[in-house]
């Protein structure tokens, strides 16, 4: 019984995370400004990392944890690089 509840709630949680990623992607495409896109890219990285963690809970395999750690590392580095680029690199239109 409790195992069924766990399976269903993990499924629902994964659906919620996918919808959250869709919201972020919509904002990523719409903009309006470059900083909004970078902000949503960062949120997208975090949500993808959480989705990978829920797959780990679903399958009971601890291998997903390593992937989640790598995703969160890459997300941090790329967002910092983008923020620096916005501050120094772009010609103001």
């Amino acid at each position: 019984m409790s195992a069924t509840i766990l399976v269903w709630s993990v499924t629902i949680a994964q659906l919620m995370l996918v919808v959250a990623m869709a919201c972020n992607t919509y904002r990523l495409i719409r903009g309006p400004r470059a900083q909004d896109r970078v902000l949503c890219l960062d949120a997208l990285y975090v949500n993808a990392m959480l989705l990978v963690l829920t797959f780990g809970i679903r399958t009971g395999s601890s291998l997903y944890f390593e992937a989640a750690l790598v995703i969160s590392l890459l997300g941090f580095i790329s967002t910092v690089a983008f923020a620096k680029f916005l501050m120094r690199g772009e010609v103001i239109e």
Partner: peptide, 9 residues
């Protein structure tokens, strides 16, 4: 997380 993503919209 979902509420936060709705907030960005």
């Amino acid at each position: 997380t979902l509420i936060g993503a709705i907030g960005t919209l």
